[in-house]
């Protein structure tokens, strides 16, 4: 099996995830797109671990999974709070940071 297989698959997932982050308006969907990006990163880590015959890549992949879990927990809590405050989770309504 070629290393390129994994890496290209990861690249495709990553780009789809980026598209999702940019295109989606619903906050939950944006979080899901971020999960896609992280999954792509994990694929890369594991592929490189296999390629170099070194387990460190897998170690990092597990770290990424842990951080992703934390991120989803906090992210969804924030979405809930936004929903409670504004009755909407449309991200384009959140433009208080407008310069």
């Amino acid at each position: 099996m070629l290393a390129v297989n994994f890496l290209l698959l990861a690249a495709v997932l990553f780009c789809i995830g980026v598209f999702g982050v940019i295109a989606r308006r619903n906050a939950v969907l944006v979080l899901m797109s971020i999960e896609l990006i992280l999954a792509a990163v994990n694929l890369n880590f594991v592929a490189f671990a296999m390629m170099n015959d070194n387990i460190d890549g897998q170690v990092f992949a597990l770290f990424v999974i842990a951080i992703a879990a934390a991120e989803v927990g906090v992210g969804l809590a924030m979405v809930l709070m936004i929903y409670r405050n504004r009755k909407s989770i449309a991200l384009d309504g959140l433009s208080e940071m407008k310069g």
């Binding site: 989606r24 308006r25 944006v30 991200l91 959140l94 433009s95 940071m97 407008k98 310069g99």
Partner: peptide, 18 residues
């Protein structure tokens, strides 16, 4: 000059970033 870029919209920031 750059003010319009600061739309406050997260998605646009993401697009710019990436």
């Amino acid at each position: 000059g750059l003010q319009p870029v600061q739309s406050g919209k997260v998605n646009q920031y993401g697009a710019l970033l990436f």
